[in-house]
Every structure is written in structure tokens, then in C-alpha cells.
Simulated assay, not measured.
Amino acid sequence: MINLWLHRLPAMAMGIVLIGLAACGQEPADPTASAVAGFELPMPMSNNAVAAAEGPDGPTLYSFNGLQAGKTWQDTSNAAFACIISIKQCEEIAAVPVDQGRLASAAVTIAGKIYIFGGYTVAENGDELSTPEVFAFDPQANSYARLTDMPTPVDDMVILPYRDRYIYLVSGWHDEGNVSLVQLYDTQFDRWSVATEFPGKPVFGHAGGLANHSMIIADGVAVAGLVDGKRKFAAAPFVWRGDIDPGDPTRISWRAVAAHPGGPRYRMAAAGDNSRGLILFAGGGDNPYNYNGIGYDGEPANPTDRVFGYDLKTDTWRELGVLATPSMDHRGLVKSGDHHYIMGGMDAKQAVSARILKFRIDD
């Protein structure tokens, strides 16, 4: 593991057709033009919860909460945006109904509604607090409904949809440390339960996806003890596969699998692809960092450009291409139609971006 000294502030059959990526070693004809989706978020936003759903004007990308360009405690945001794909237009919509901005929250779409979970607040003195709120956003009505709070508030967790009903929250940070919990939310009954515990070191900033009945959880940052009263952090270059019992969603059989090539990445964009049995990962930082993009070791983090996937059928990793624009600080990879989208994040020199990238994978 890569040791990081500091504390979190207190408290080849498959190819990528690149609309924004290089396919199988071949550059697209115009990588700069094809690297973007043709529209941007109304303002730069990073560490934002993202999802796709059917909006009033057709397939729409959504962004909730996040960090604005100033990257200070005052730049945490509860703003929300809707980006209509057909007309390539983004607009600000009703904000998430919370008093303070949220970082490291997560969102996922189930049965046409977007569920938004947690995040953390940052106080002027640097204290961070994990928040318990859960909201269901109705894209058609542009409205939020408050649901039952998370039993254990977490942020920087992995969030995974299952069977268009259940939502898994895997590990993550809770106020003063990481948790091994796998919390399971049933959208049908607004009810929480606990699934089989995550067996690896508890982490935050990890990434993962779920396809069919299997999930992959990769990387993240673990707490490796205290030095002079401060937490010692370590990048966790470990990957775990969890296979869900189809008859009982609370039962998960976990096993370690090979780490992906290239070393661990922090806050990658990730998602599962059911039709291909593939878990996709894109971008991410090369050095775990605090919310401003500066590493816990004091060194600035740099965005990466790799796109790769884990094939659940063969238990192997596949290189799928590279992003034309390196990007990091993501909370999800969303899909609409044939394309996957990366919304906002950080570019080189830890600059918060409004850019929307897209790519497509073809068999």
C-alpha cells in the first residue's frame, strides 16, 4: 500500500467507440471536438452526485450537490442541474432541500426516480460531518421527497442499484472513520437492512459497479492507524467481487480478485453494464486527496485518462481506451441510450470543470 501521512480534515472482441475516447489505440479523427458532449453544466462542479432519468423533455442527465470552482468550505453546494440530451442544453433546477452544501453524496435511478444519499458538510474550521438524508427526486415533477434516513450516515461510499428496486451502499466514511457496512435500501418499502459486511479494509473514495447479480469494488483509501494523533491514510489497491444471492439480496459472497493494472485510483467514475456483464471504470486521481484536490501527503493529485473494465464472466480486466481529457473527482458514471457520461469533476491542476464527456462501447 502507498502510505499517506495526514488526516482527513477533522470531524479483442470488445472495443470503445470514442466519442471522447481513443479506441483500441486509434485516435478519433477530431479528439478535441469529440471529447465533449456538446453541452456543459451551468457552472463548474466536482464531487457531485450524478444520474440519468427520463425527464419531461426526454432522456436527461442530472447533477446534485458538489464543490464549486473556489474549492473552499464556502464552495460546497446543494445546486442541481438537468441536462436534456436531445437538445444539448443544461439548466439549473430546484436545489436539494438541505441547509448546507454537500460533498461526496451519491445518486442512482430506480424505477424512474432518482435517489440521493448523504454526503458531508464542511464547517469554517474544517470540521466535516457525514449527513443522513435520503431524498427521492421525481424528474417529471421536479420535486424532492424526504425518505427514511440512512441508519449509519456515510459519504464517499459506493452506491449500486439492483433489480430496479434495491440500492446498496458499500463501505464509505462515517464522521470519524471508514465503515465496513453494506447498507441495503428497499425503495419499494422505504426500508433499510444490512447486507453481508464488506470484507476488505473499510475505505472511502472507492469505485464500483453492479451487473446482473455481481458487483466489483475497487481501490479507495483506508485508515492505517494514528501518527502523532493524526490519522495515517493508505491507498488501498485491492479489488473485491461480491456475488448476490438471487433469493436474498442481503446475502453477498465476497472474494478478492486481481487488482487492475496501473495502480490504485481515487474517485473514479464507475458503473455496471448488465448486457455485457462488465463493470466500467474511467478516470480518477493518481493520489488520494482532500476535497480541494491536494493529496493527503501534501502533493497535488493529477487526473488520469484510462477507461477499463472488469469482465464478470472471465474474471479478467480489459483495457477499453483512454479519455481524451483526463478527469477525476467523480461520484458515478451514468448511461443514457448507448452512451456513458462523465459530468463535471476536476481537470489538470485540480481545476473544477463544467465539461460533460461521453463515450460508447461497441461489441
Results as ranks from 00 to 15, higher is better:
residue 260 H to N: 03
residue 243 D to T: 13
residue 262 G to M: 00
residue 222 A to D: 09
residue 236 A to W: 06
residue 236 A to G: 00
residue 261 P to A: 11
residue 236 A to Y: 06
residue 255 R to D: 12
residue 255 R to A: 10
residue 257 V to D: 08
residue 228 D to W: 02
residue 225 G to L: 09
residue 231 R to F: 15
residue 248 D to T: 01
residue 225 G to W: 07
residue 238 F to P: 00
residue 232 K to S: 11
residue 243 D to Y: 05
residue 254 W to S: 13
residue 258 A to V: 14
residue 246 P to Y: 07
residue 260 H to Y: 03
residue 246 P to G: 06
residue 238 F to H: 11
residue 253 S to A: 13
residue 251 R to N: 08
residue 245 D to Q: 08
residue 225 G to H: 08
residue 243 D to A: 12
residue 256 A to P: 14
residue 239 V to S: 04
residue 236 A to M: 07
residue 223 V to T: 10
residue 256 A to T: 15
residue 240 W to H: 04
residue 235 A to L: 10
residue 251 R to L: 08
residue 249 P to M: 08
residue 223 V to P: 02
residue 219 D to T: 00
residue 264 P to I: 06
residue 247 G to F: 11
residue 227 V to K: 15
residue 224 A to F: 12
residue 221 V to Y: 01
residue 224 A to N: 15
residue 259 A to N: 03
residue 219 D to R: 02
residue 224 A to L: 04
residue 251 R to Y: 05
residue 222 A to K: 14
residue 229 G to M: 10
residue 236 A to Q: 07
residue 251 R to K: 13
residue 228 D to M: 09
residue 264 P to V: 02
residue 264 P to A: 14
residue 246 P to D: 00
residue 255 R to I: 06
residue 230 K to C: 09
residue 239 V to G: 03
residue 226 L to V: 12
residue 257 V to L: 03
residue 228 D to C: 05
residue 219 D to L: 03
residue 235 A to F: 02
residue 256 A to W: 09
residue 229 G to N: 12
residue 241 R to S: 13
residue 256 A to K: 14
residue 236 A to N: 09
residue 248 D to S: 07
residue 224 A to G: 08
residue 234 A to I: 03
residue 246 P to F: 08
residue 253 S to V: 04
residue 249 P to I: 03
residue 229 G to W: 14
residue 255 R to W: 08
residue 264 P to S: 09
residue 239 V to W: 04
residue 243 D to R: 14
residue 226 L to E: 12
residue 240 W to S: 01
residue 244 I to M: 09
residue 258 A to Y: 07
residue 241 R to I: 05
residue 223 V to Y: 15
residue 247 G to W: 11
residue 222 A to R: 15
residue 219 D to E: 12
residue 220 G to S: 06
residue 231 R to Q: 15
residue 236 A to F: 05
residue 254 W to D: 09
residue 234 A to P: 01
residue 243 D to H: 05
residue 222 A to I: 07
residue 223 V to R: 09
residue 224 A to H: 09
residue 262 G to N: 00
residue 233 F to M: 14
residue 235 A to T: 01
residue 248 D to C: 07
residue 242 G to P: 02
residue 257 V to H: 11
residue 258 A to P: 10
residue 219 D to W: 00
